[in-house]
Amino acid sequence: MRSRRLWSLVLTLGLLNLPTVCAQPSHRMLGDACAGCHGTRGHSASPMPIIAGLPEAYLRQTLRDYKSGKRPSTIMGRVASGYDDAEIDALAAFFASQVWISPHQELDPKLVKSGKRIHRDGCSACHKDNGRFQDDTVPRLAGQWRGYLEIVLEEYLLRERRMPHLFMSIAISQLDEDELRALASFYASQR
């Protein structure tokens, strides 16, 4: 009885002394700073990735992985480290709330065609609906910049880059460079 009263007293005091929620810059303030590389509201010029409208959980995890170094990067690790968890949440929410827009791209129809075949055979289980599908762990690929897709696929191939998604590395390692270029062109062609 005594310990329960003590415990509820402690709880009450704890509630009264709750620290004020740390004020932080707004979603828009944080997100607009990124436009210099990622374009206004995440609508980029090639080959920076279009991040407008990607899934919130995916963006959050990606930023955290850049920050921790789990996902290698040239510059994003240094940038993501500049934000705490709450700010990363805000950035993810900001870009996830933007509208995805597929840009016009000049693509080789032969590559698009062979890429479609490779997608069907190996990628469509996760990257459903021709790469339009997205969820917490699968980003939209349909309509992404061909140049960016080529860069990321190349990263999965490079032994020196230890990408966080082992499953992806294994899947990609089965393909050669021409096939990766075809895949990139295929997804880029989808809207």
């Binding site: 707004s26 303030m29 944080l30 700073a33 590389c37 940038v79 500049g82």
Partner: peptide, 8 residues
């Protein structure tokens, strides 16, 4: 508003 700034 509370600011956030960046440079690369």
């Amino acid at each position: 508003p509370l600011p956030s700034y960046i440079n690369t």
